[in-house]
């Protein structure tokens, strides 16, 4: 297929449709509104549902209902809206429902700003909502990877019956790059015999629920769910490593920031500094093993984020003291520039 130029937000929407999503529930918020606008244009033409909900809270609960009814459902928002959706995400995790939630992150806290940020890492990978649960978080770094990640997100959600977050930022959402879409004609979506589609008086009622009043029962259920999480940690870690074989310093960055870091690494290499990159693509499950192994071989690790330092905590846990882990971050919607990252690299080698 021919490559077309597409905004990140529009690429997510098109990829979701091609992945079989026919139910999208949204609420406008900058900088992700193009997703809703695209869905509003396309869904009526393909027999799908686009619904602008009365709030982010309502939208995520519509996703809960639709996912419980067995369809591929999605919602998207940006940081303040994800805070509102967090209640629903917890219920979705507690009821073992598959769905995709898009967060095109902007600066916070509060209303914050509308420029790109990565300050929702904690919210995404450490909970956000209440309770013992995990959510797979996929953080692409280019528009083509956004497309691939959207397919992946729906597949993982169905495979493990759990919410998956696709995390971008204002820059990825707004920028255009060439993309190609895989051919999905004839791809069959998985059967969901647990969904509430009506008993047709042929089976016992299906119940979608997260309430378990007996502590023993709830503990057993959560422990069972944890086995799934461990399986995911073993099988679904995704990352990109570049120049790590001979590196004296490893940079760790994800999403749009990783692109900036790549430019800085290029300059470092040109100037004789052996710098490498580990780019987590899944933020949970986190690529701890590769970082742990790298930490034993390098002089230092430098974590770069558009935040005051969130992922760096997981990098430090992974490095476990094997080497110093430094941090460089810009926040509030300020995007780091390659020259500044290069200067940081020089400080540590």
């Amino acid at each position: 297929m021919d490559k077309v130029l597409m905004k990140g937000n529009e690429a997510i929407a098109e990829a979701a449709i091609r992945a079989g999503c026919r139910h999208f529930f949204g609420y406008p918020i900058t900088p992700q509104t193009e997703i809703s606008a695209y869905m509003a244009r396309r869904m009526p033409k393909i027999g799908g549902t686009f619904l602008q909900a009365e709030s982010e809270v309502a939208a995520i609960n519509m996703v809960y209902g639709a996912a419980g009814a067995g369809v591929r459902a999605m919602t998207s928002s940006s940081s303040p809206g994800i805070s509102l959706k967090s209640e629903g995400i917890s219920y979705i995790a507690g009821a073992d429902l598959p769905c995709v939630i898009v967060n095109i992150v902007r600066a916070g806290p509060g209303l914050g700003g509308i420029q790109p940020a990565q300050s929702d890492y904690f919210q995404a990978v450490k909970g956000g909502g209440h309770g013992d649960y995990r959510m797979i978080v996929v953080a692409p770094s280019s528009i083509q990877e956004i497309v691939d990640s959207t397919f992946l997100a729906f597949d993982l959600a169905d495979k493990y019956r759990m919410p998956v977050m696709l995390m971008g930022d204002g820059m990825l959402g707004q920028m255009m790059e060439p993309v190609a879409f895989p051919d999905t004609t004839g791809v069959k979506l998985p059967e969901k015999e647990w969904a509430t589609t009506g008993t047709k008086k042929m089976r016992k009622p299906n119940i979608i629920n997260s309430l378990y009043i007996q502590p023993d029962e709830l503990e057993a259920l959560i422990k069972n769910r944890w086995k799934k999480y461990i399986e995911i940690e073993q099988n679904e870690v995704r990352f990109e490593a570049e120049g790590t074989e001979d590196a004296e310093i490893i940079l760790v960055a994800y999403g749009a920031t990783a692109r900036i870091v790549k430019a800085a690494i290029k300059k470092a290499r040109e100037n004789g500094i052996k710098a490498g990159l580990i780019r987590p693509i899944t933020l949970w499950p986190f690529p701890s093993d590769v970082i742990s192994a790298a930490a034993k071989k390098v002089k230092a690790i430098l974590c770069v984020e558009m935040s005051m330092g969130q992922m760096v905590e997981d990098v430090r846990l992974s490095a476990a003291g094997a080497c110093p882990v430094h941090f460089y971050g810009r926040t509030g919607g300020v995007v780091p520039i390659p020259a500044d990252v290069y200067d940081e690299i020089r400080r540590y080698v």
Partner: peptide
């Protein structure tokens, strides 16, 4: 078949199911 909704969200959940 039944779904248990979060507090106050039943009409939104029902909307999702119906759609």
């Amino acid at each position: 078949d039944m779904q248990e909704a979060a507090h106050g969200r039943a009409p939104a959940v029902a909307t999702g199911i119906k759609r």
